[in-house]
Structures are given as C-alpha cells and as structure tokens.
Design a protein around this nucleic acid. Structure first.
Lengths: 215, 215
DNA sequence: TAGATTGTTAATCGATTAACAATC
DNA sequence: TAGATTGTTAATCGATTAACAATC
C-alpha cells in the first residue's frame, strides 16, 4: 500500500507514460535524470513531475535527481506490472482477434486464455494459443479459471450483457472496445476505448482548425 | 466558423459522446430532451451540458429543451461528419489490418485507400478494397491521392518516421497506434491511442483498489 | 399566463504551476 | 563547502458546478 492519500485519475493516467519514458531512458543507458530534463522530454513541467512522483513517496534525492531504473521499477510495481493476468476476450471479430494476438501482451505477462463469440462458425477456431468458445460457455469458464481482465469487443448491443457476465464471473477489470459506455459496480474497473470517438476528435480538427495553423 | 471563442479540448472530446447519445435517442424516437435528462443519461450535470452546447451557439429553447435531431445534426456538422475522408494505413500488422477493416468506418464515410508496409511478403495483399503497398511508395501515393488521415500502426521505432512522411504528404490528421508519442507540426492534428497505457490503468486499479470496493 | 428550461454570470473545485526552504 | 535539485507549500489557472434572470 504505497499510495499516500487518494491518487487522482489524472495522475494514474500519466503513470504508464512515465513508465514508457523511463524504459526508454534505461535503454539509452541514462542512469539518473532530473525532473527538469524528464519534463522536457515528456512535455510536462518539472513541477508536475515532482508532484506526481511524490504521490508515491520521496523517490528522488535532492541535488541528484531520480535514479532511472529505481524509479522505473517503482512505477512498474505501482502499476502491478510484476503480476501476471488471465484474460478473456468477448467477441472474436476484427478487433477481438487483433487485441487477442497483440504482441505487446506477452511482454506484459498477459495470458489470453479464451475468446467467446455467439457466431457458431467461429467456435473452435484458434487465435494464437487460445480457442474461440461459444458465449454460453463463459459463465462456466470463469468459474473454473481465474480471470482478471475481460476484453469486450462485441457489437454495441451485446456489450453491457457481456460486461455483466464478466462481473458476475469475478473479473476485476473490463477493457471495452464496443461503441457504448459500459457500467460496472465498484470493484471492477472499466476503461472505455471508444475508437470512433477518438477518430471524431481528429475530424473535428480537420474540419475546424485553420489549415497550416494560420490562414 | 461556428465556434465562439476557443473551444477547449475537454469539450471537443465530449462532442463525439454527445453525438453518440443523441443518435441513440433518435433511434428510440425521442424528439426533445432537457439538459437535465440528457445529463442523467450521460452521467454529466445539466449545467455542464448547457455550457458545452453553448460553445456553439444557443441551440436550445427556454422552457422546451433541445430538439434531439436538430442538435445531433448540428454536432455532426461541427465534427465534420458530413465530409468524406481519404485514409491510408501505415503498418499492415494485426492492428493496421483490424483498423483498416473496421466496419465503423464505412458508416462514417472513411475510405481506406491503401496500406503500406516494409515487409515484402505482405505487399500486394488486399485488405477489403485496399491493397498493401511497399512503404517506399508512400510519398508518390500521397502526391497523387488526396488523403486526409494517416493511421500509424507501425512498431515504435518506425512511427515518427511514418508520421513525418504523412505530414510531408499533406495529411491533415494522424491517428497513432504505435506505443510512442508522435510529434507533428501545427496544422496536423494527432491522436495517440496508446493501447498499452490504457491497459496499465486497469492493472493499476486491479493492483491498488480494494477488491469489492470495500475490504 | 404559469411553468419549464435555457443562456449566462458567479462561485467552487481540482489540477497545474511557481516558489523556496530543506538537504543531498 | 557550494551547487543542484528535490519535497512541499502557496498561487494560479482552467474546468466544473451552482444560481438565477431571461424567455419560450
């Protein structure tokens, strides 16, 4: 329990970014870094970096800065990166398959243990090490296998139902790619990806920003 | 140019969400809605909804509320949803393919015109209506075809280079799925998707929140 | 008209930034 | 030690919420 008070969601969202940049610095062989320079790289103020890091204790050293590997390891621990996670994917369409076979996962110690779909034609097919099961079998599967994360990649209409089944099966977190906001009770974290929303932010800028930034 | 002053990015990010909920209401046959009720559905305060909408003019009517279709159409216009957009995808791996064949696109009038990859083995393959070209051919392709949006789905190391080529080719917006932050000059909007960052927010909560929300 | 609900100004809240004493 | 840089408190800024007069 390293967290001081309550860590704001804004800070939590920056944590993976810190981890990413620190990993990079380690690769470059940089062993120490000041909030000043880390800020310059990440496009944040030195002040903010010190505030953020201090949510988790005094990890720096006056006059020296931060030890890159030490800080990276500490943030990795806060993010739960040491653990490994069992994952199921609901919906074996384009997105479900792509996410299931995403290579970044192995590196992170995620095991995709099964996919589920209502389409009979897909049942039995294998995606990497995992097999596609019929959605009906989800409840039983969750009862037998300790699954931490459920990925929802169904059409909009099926998403909340899928989420409810996952929650009932004791899943701790849901990663939702369906184009609807999903609700889950406390104790089950949800991240909505909303690819289309994200894309429309781009069309907004294409449509409304002056081309070239000036004219 | 409908925008009043400068619309904050926080508001812009909510615009697609408004659009999504209003679409839903239209489907349900709801013709008018108050900020109160829309707020209840979306999990926002009525106040915030009125503030947001007023960035784009007085679109409601006192004592009545908002006309659902009218408001939806207005927001669609602000988001540039009437236009159609030429798209290229750089990187024809799992994510590139999945995004290229994402069915949500057609509905939005996005035309994926080509994919590009450095892997010779993939060149010539077709994904939906589009063909995979060698990355070398990107510059020439952009010179010939009016492309609005470039989707970057390369490994981290190749992402900034791909973005630079897209910018040089006159692309107006970049949708980046590579696990690095990409820089582009003003006049080219960037949305970083960072799937892994998003996922680590979930592992953070699994690792740090009390299970069940209480114990 | 009376009731409802917006548009808009003012108050509040939280997050970011600045400043500086503590300390390595 | 002197210089650098943190940890932390105070100031600022922006976004959200509350309040209420305008008006349909």
């Amino acid at each position: 329990m390293p967290a001081k008070d309550k860590v704001s969601e804004a800070v939590v969202r920056r944590l993976p970014v810190y981890h990413r940049y620190l990993e990079r610095l380690e690769e470059e062989g940089v062993t120490r870094i000041s909030s000043q320079e880390l800020g310059a790289r990440m496009g944040l103020t030195a002040s903010q970096i010190r505030q953020d890091i201090n949510c988790f204790g005094a990890l720096g050293q006056q006059g020296y800065g931060y030890n890159v590997s030490e800080l990276r390891r500490h943030i990795a621990e806060i993010l739960g990166l040491g653990d490994d996670y069992g994952v199921v994917v609901i919906g074996a369409g384009n997105i479900g398959r792509a996410v299931a076979s995403y290579t970044g996962f192995a590196r992170l110690r995620f095991r995709v243990e099964a996919l589920f779909d209502t389409d009979e034609a897909r049942v039995g097919e294998r995606i990497g090490d995992a097999e596609i099961h019929r959605l009906d079998a989800l409840g039983a599967f969750l009862a037998d296998h300790p699954i931490d994360i459920g990925i929802v990649a169904t059409p909009a209409a099926a998403a909340q139902g899928a989420a409810d089944m996952l929650v009932a099966g004791g899943v701790r977190a849901i990663w939702n790619f369906a184009p609807v906001d999903i609700a889950a009770p406390e104790g089950c974290a949800v991240q909505n990806v909303q690819l289309t929303d994200n894309l429309l932010v781009l069309t907004y800028h294409i449509h409304n920003d002056a081309p070239g930034g000036g004219a």
